[in-house]
């Protein structure tokens, strides 16, 4: 596969390490003073994932490159990659800024 890195252009997927569902960005807050069922939230975060036959947003690490984490939107049926973003941009856009 070829991943079109947003900064470096097309790079062989062999340079990357696959991690998993991009929802792993959405780690719940585990602070002791958080209200709500923290352990249930972490259970969901850690173990419950969709396994779509089709478009899937997933995390890839450019281990053999610039060490960026990327969010890659890949069709699991065709391997067609429709979007590649820097994970840090996605994380900020999705509310991970502190």
């Amino acid at each position: 596969m070829i991943i079109n890195h947003p900064l470096l252009g097309p790079r062989d997927a062999a340079e990357f390490t696959y991690f998993g569902d991009a929802n792993l960005i959405h780690r719940p807050d585990g602070s002791p003073d958080t209200t709500g069922n923290t352990s249930a939230q972490f259970y969901t975060y850690q173990y419950l994932r969709d396994n779509p036959a089709g478009e899937h947003r997933e995390l890839w690490f450019h281990e053999g490159g610039d060490r960026s984490w990327l969010v890659v939107t890949r069709n699991t049926l065709t391997h067609d990659i429709s979007n590649v973003e820097l994970a840090s941009d996605v994380a900020r856009a999705e509310g991970r800024s502190t």
Partner: peptide
């Protein structure tokens, strides 16, 4: 060594991007 570095970059870029 490799796994921990990757894990720390994940935490830095994906979980707490503005630290």
């Amino acid at each position: 060594a490799v796994n921990v570095y990757r894990h720390m970059e994940f935490a830095r870029q994906c979980l707490w991007p503005d630290l």
